[in-house]
Design a protein around this nucleic acid. Structure first.
Lengths: 193, 193
DNA sequence: CCCGGAAACTTGTCAATGACTAGATATGGC
DNA sequence: GCCATATCTAGTCATTGACAAGTTTCCGGG
């Protein structure tokens, strides 16, 4: 399978998508060039457009795939704190997806696949707020949700942009976030430990 | 002064910088084109390069100016909570600066002006952590600092990307953040109210 | 078997851009 | 008044995204 060049690539869509993730993870979405991806896949410069329409289409596909994976990752977390840990781990484990997901100006806002996947992720994200102990909520679920999301998102974002390199040191970021959450949301009991 | 076209613009550097801020605030840094800025300033397409070297140079200048303004804004805040409020207000009040500041891949990392301004902002940012009541710190200043920064940065970032439009509604984001901080850092007394 | 339509891919082209070079013009110190 | 220099112009090149039109392969119906 590797090396056979027929007129039909076989799975050009996946190949381009994967190459795009490599480039984005290494140099950010701005460095993405359709023509470069075509070269990597060994096809003509216009071939990718057939699968993604244009650059925005490709990035929209990346975002949609990202939100789908994100929703899965969040759904596996048992409680709010672990959801936060999963949030951070996803950002570090899928930096390309994550970066593109939270840059709406890169997307086709009305793409059906994107909307569906994002809705699923949003649901998974909100699911856990009611699990917070009362003392931490201060009686306002919505505010607590914003706080939790902001904390996880800020931590993940700062990590990805290299702004927390020394403070975190070599420690596992997931663990650091667990400590953060413990510090910030006064854990009285919650589910497990 | 408006309309006089001499060979020398007068203050092309400032004019290009200001135009750049407009474009970035409206359409993000990706939409920035040196040639477009030149057109807006009424000069030839290569004129901006003389002041900023290249696109990266311009964005580096934006980031440097942003960090300088940011440091000033943070320095005026009396305590940690207000520093967070100032953080959020800065992000919303200077969206172009803020966006560029936290996208290191857009900068010339070794630019002296950038390094100086960022160092000043970092100092201002860290200054307030020791002001936290003990119960909130959990004995770890560094962790509390990360928590505070993550919360403010996450909230600001999510706001700017349009992800908190409905939850925040029409309320003043600074006020919302004040509430967030009160919820998250169990305020026992702190300075003012 | 083959035939026709559709999907996948190629080739060619255009306008826009960033970067670079060389040259023209104004400015300010002396 | 004069010259070094900062500022700006004009011209060029390679790269890119987008689009149009043509070519090759695939696949299902007859």
């Amino acid at each position: 399978m590797t090396g056979e060049r027929t007129y039909h690539h076989g799975d050009l869509r996946r190949a381009v998508l994967t190459a795009a993730l490599d480039v984005i993870a290494a140099d950010g979405p701005d460095a993405l060039s359709l023509r470069d991806l075509a070269r990597r896949a060994g096809v003509s410069h216009a071939a990718p457009a057939h699968h993604f329409k244009d650059r925005t289409g490709l990035l929209t596909a990346v975002a949609a795939e990202g939100y789908a994976l994100f929703a899965d990752a969040l759904a596996e977390a048992p409680d709010l704190r672990e959801r936060g840990v999963a949030y951070v781990r996803f950002a570090l484990g899928h930096p390309a997806h994550f970066q593109v997901m939270f840059r709406p100006e890169l997307h086709r806002a009305d793409d059906p696949a994107l909307l569906t996947a994002r809705a699923r992720a949003t649901t998974a994200l909100r699911a856990g707020v009611s699990g917070l102990p009362d003392a931490s909520r201060g009686g306002d679920d919505r505010l607590a949700g914003i706080a939790a999301w902001s904390l996880a998102h800020g931590f993940a974002t700062l990590l990805l942009s290299g702004n927390l390199d020394e403070p975190v040191g070599g420690r596992d970021p997931g663990e650091v976030f667990r400590a953060l959450a413990g510090l910030v949301f006064t854990q009285e009991d919650d589910s497990d430990g």
